[in-house]
Design a protein around this nucleic acid. Structure first.
Length: 470
RNA sequence: CGGGCUGUGGCGCAGCUUGGUUAGCGCGCUUGACUGGGGGUCAAGAGGUCCCGGGUUCAAAUCCCGGCAGCCCGACCA
């Protein structure tokens, strides 16, 4: 890969990605196409992201559990829309134990059906509600056209599944997850601004009454659905017979939600913040926040680098010491730049002779000479400002690429390179079909002020955010 | 399943129109030297069933026929 490999241009994105976070095996894994390989650096980013999500999920009251990978085919068929939505992308096991199975087993594409089969046993009384479960697992969807991280045939995710006594409870919880877990992680941790809203009937999850979504804009102006939270109504509780005795002793079906985000978020992070020189990581998600680089080997330089790394570590930062002087300095510094490490501290004989080191800010790509005693402070100020700076940059970018329009034709024009905001009713009855002819979809619906739709709202009066998507 | 396109060392490609010595180039890899403040320079070297099968020809990576594989754009989607 030469200089100027870009993530902000779609066609260069996968190659770029592979070098830093992914293996090169995705499209080259024999018959198992489009599965996922994540290199250690990328997985380190995922682990940090996962910890942030997991903490918020627990704060929202859900507990982690684990359910089977294999699902009897009959389970999926219980909910008609659900099976119809997933049928084409199912991987099915027909043989096991050396013989053909009586009933094929589906490798889970999502776990509503297995989990609900347990909910029906576990839930008896209103005292069992709400039941709030989450599972970290990998799922398989045989995608027609996989794309590294953004749409792999196998992916790691978290899927939450809940059961509530009333429709209102379920909706409130779905929205709580959307805001306090998803939006919060995306904005505050990934530093990626998102629009929240709900999907049109055409775009929503198979089996949901309402799908809430977080939509981000990537560096090429395309949208990425970064997470969803569904109100499932009683669509699963009726066929799976999940009932409870209410306070007055009569039997009712539960109201449910499900919600998930995946390793796609790693893709979102790269696509939203990457520049011509590689990844740019918000410090919260950087496996190494600072790398101390030995420019050229000498006893003084080596000792100073070790001391600095120790000092920064005890200040609480994740620090890597790079003293591999058998590799050229240029190579190593470009490596860390490509990986997106927010700060590099370069210790070389020339600076050191004057009592200085060089502190490089990856996001802004500027460097300054700093006295040894001031390094900790200088590093801290870069790291503390970096997340907000990335968020501000991405927000400004999205705003610049978003147009308010009044007609379908204008929405198509503005939706090609970015987003268009248009009154949903203005698109007309076949509006979504017309948009689709230009590979444009309604990403979400919101109230004109950007807030979430409320139960009584007339959909025609909501604003549609339209654009091209991954 | 529609619409474009491509198969040539590990990766990316040129060569094919107009057949002709030993199939080139960049990156990567190995060894050595000089280096080291931005994927450094120089030298030497390893690595090829030109996707497969058949045909035309004195001669095929190149032309013809038939296969196979893969990619991109759409439909599906966290």
């Amino acid at each position: 890969m030469g200089k100027g490999a870009i993530v902000t241009r779609e066609e260069d994105f996968p190659r770029w990605y592979q070098e830093v976070v992914a293996g090169s095996e995705m499209a080259d894994n024999g018959p198992v196409r489009g599965t996922m390989v994540i290199r250690p650096w990328g997985y380190g980013i995922w682990e940090l992201m996962q910890a942030e999500l997991d903490r918020r999920i627990k704060e929202a009251g859900a507990e982690n559990a684990y359910f089977p990978l294999f699902i009897p085919e009959a389970f999926l068929k219980l909910e008609a829309e659900h099976v119809e939505g997933f049928a084409p992308e199912l991987a099915v096991v027909t043989h096991a134990g050396g013989k053909e199975l009586d009933e094929p087993l589906v490798v889970r594409p999502t776990s509503e059906t297995v989990i609900n089969s347990f909910f029906s046993k576990w839930i008896q009384s209103h005292r069992d509600l709400p039941m709030l479960l989450n599972q970290w697992a990998n799922v398989v969807r045989w995608e027609l056209r996989p794309r590294l991280f953004l749409r792999t045939s196998e992916f790691l995710w978290q899927e939450g599944h809940t059961a509530h006594a009333t429709e209102d409870d379920a909706r409130v919880y779905a929205l709580r997850i959307l805001d306090e877990v998803y939006r919060s992680t995306m904005v505050d941790v990934l530093a990626v601004p998102v629009l929240t809203g709900h999907k049109t009937a055409r775009e929503r999850f198979a089996g949901a009454n309402r799908t809430w979504t977080c939509e981000g804009m990537m560096g090429d102006g395309k949208a990425l659905q970064m997470g969803t939270s569904h109100e499932l109504g009683q669509n699963f509780s009726v066929p799976f017979d999940i009932t409870f005795s209410n306070a007055s002793g009569s039997l009712e079906h539960v109201w449910q939600t499900s919600w998930g985000v995946s390793t796609r978020l790693v893709g979102a992070l790269v696509m939203a913040h990457g520049d011509d020189f590689g990844l740019r990581l918000p410090p919260a998600l950087a496996p190494a926040q600072v790398v101390v680089l030995v420019v050229k080997d000498s006893p003084e330089v080596g000792a100073a680098a070790v001391a600095l790394a120790g000092e920064l570590r005890s200040a609480g930062w994740r620090v890597r010491l790079d003293d591999r002087t058998d590799t050229s300095f240029g190579r190593r510094s470009v490596d860390w730049e490509l990986k997106g490490v927010p700060v590099r501290v370069e210790v070389g004989p020339r600076d050191l002779a004057e009592g200085n080191v060089t502190v490089v800010n990856r996001h802004r790509r500027d460097k300054q000479s700093v006295p040894l005693a001031g390094v900790a402070g200088s590093v801290a100020s870069v790291l503390e400002a970096a997340g907000a700076a990335l968020l501000a940059e991405a927000s400004a970018f999205r705003e610049a690429k978003t147009a308010d329009v009044g007609t379908l034709a204008e929405a198509i024009e503005a939706g090609e390179p970015g987003f268009a905001r248009v009154r949903f009713g203005a698109l007309g009855p076949d509006g979504e079909d017309r948009l689709a002819e230009h590979a444009i979809t309604v990403r979400c619906l919101q109230r004109p002020d950007g807030s979430l739709a409320q139960p009584g709202d007339d959909e025609e009066d909501l604003v549609a955010i339209v654009g091209r998507s991954y």
